[in-house]
């Protein structure tokens, strides 16, 4: 239990770090949204699941899954709203040259 929790926490922390690096490295807004996607899904899910392993059975567990569900439902909506607003604000995505 402890080991599974530690592994998940580590994966989550790494994913968060990668997402943060991605937010800095990516060339434009739309590609940065993909990097945020990593922190929102794998990062948050792995850390919250890791915590669920040490939370024990009870109200804490339910609340952890509630937070996870809220994050997984709302973050894509926020990303979509952001991308859509940027398109409407006449920001054209940086596209690679077609091969």
């Amino acid at each position: 239990m402890e080991i599974a929790s530690a592994i998940l926490l580590l994966i989550g922390a790494l994913a968060m770090l990668v997402g943060g690096i991605g937010i800095l490295r990516m060339p434009d807004l739309f590609t940065r949204l993909h990097a945020v996607g990593i922190t929102d899904t794998l990062g948050a899910a792995a850390i919250l699941l890791g915590l669920a392993f040490i939370a024990g059975w009870g109200l804490l567990l339910v609340k952890l899954f509630l937070i996870l569900a809220v994050l997984l439902l709302l973050n894509p909506t926020a990303s979509h709203a952001l991308g859509r607003a940027a398109v409407h604000g006449a920001r054209r995505p940086w596209l690679s040259a077609p091969k």
Partner: peptide
């Protein structure tokens, strides 16, 4: 929502019969 949740694809515009995806 599933498209956006999957890293690597983001839905930009949703209309009645198609979705614009980055």
């Amino acid at each position: 929502n599933s498209i956006t949740l999957t890293p690597g694809t983001i839905s930009l515009e949703v209309s009645d019969d198609e979705i614009e995806v980055h």
